[in-house]
Design a protein around this nucleic acid. Structure first.
Lengths: 154, 154
DNA sequence: GTATTTGCAAATCATTTGCATAAAC
DNA sequence: GTTTATGCAAATGATTTGCAAATAC
């Protein structure tokens, strides 16, 4: 997903009306490698489109997530991050800066995939690696340690 | 961790002063199988201890997490959940009700553990299973579908 | 033309902070 | 006696909601 027609098509396909706001939000996400917070998206799109409101960004994100075009990532305590990479992938979360990087998709061995014995149904399995990213590994911040509670905030 | 002296010992060991509030919060978490939100903890502890404030619950949780006695779990968009099970384990998150269940710990095969090639250091690897839990598998809610954005809220 | 979406402002929810008092060590 | 934690109330930050005007279909 990158070209203009593809973005429009993706929106239609998800059953969403094509508004300039939605187009811009999805285009922004599709052109990014790092995961953006709702506010970062607002700031960026707002530059080209000054009358955009935050509420619309949130509405749009909800619609996109619901339509399966975007994934939402919970970041311990911090603001949620959004990501338009639809190919499945795993994540690496930095304990120090809170940044999220993609990790190429791989399947868990079948024996492990059956480990969730809750009696329910499993739709997907995601692996989250935690540690210090390349940039933070060198100079970790004062409070940024394993617990990660303090790490992402303060 | 379950008996009274163990809880007190755990607090001391983490370098925390032993206050009734901290004791109660940790005891509550230690005696629970489901992961509780800060507010659920407040409600519960508040019954036995009516002058407890929410700020203290948050302060205590931060201290416990920092001291390594409690883990914090980010739940897509919703309030964070806390958990005093210290043995490593994975999680199952229900798309419909947002509930979180523990999945017994297992190691990823070494080949997969090396997949995070960010140049940084990896501290831990967690696996998150998503789907419908036993209770919701039978009767999923109106909006509660894969995206899980709407699922955890509304 | 009708159903949706937008933008705005106000509302809500989770969490944090400042500060005087109280309790732990 | 000092240092740290508590409780309260007010502040902050993220996200949602109500509603009239604008827009997509």
């Amino acid at each position: 997903m990158a070209g203009q027609p593809e973005i429009a098509r993706a929106l239609r396909q998800a059953g969403l009306r094509l508004t300039p706001q939605r187009y811009d939000v999805l285009a922004f996400l599709a052109g990014r490698r790092v995961h953006a917070t709702a506010d970062e998206i607002f700031q960026a799109v707002n530059r080209a489109h000054p009358r955009l409101s935050r509420a619309t960004v949130y509405n749009t994100l909800r619609a996109l997530v619901r339509g399966g075009l975007v994934r939402e990532l919970a970041a311990d305590g911090a603001a949620a991050r959004f990501d338009a990479r639809l190919e499945r992938h795993h994540h690496f979360v930095c304990d120090a800066c809170g940044g999220i990087e993609d990790v190429e998709w791989f399947e868990l061995p079948p024996a492990l995939r059956r480990r969730a014995r809750s009696g329910g149904t499993v739709r997907e399995i995601e692996v989250i690696f935690r540690g210090f990213c390349r940039r933070c590994a060198g100079a970790p911040r004062p409070g940024g340690v394993p617990g990660s509670y303090t790490a992402t905030k303060q």
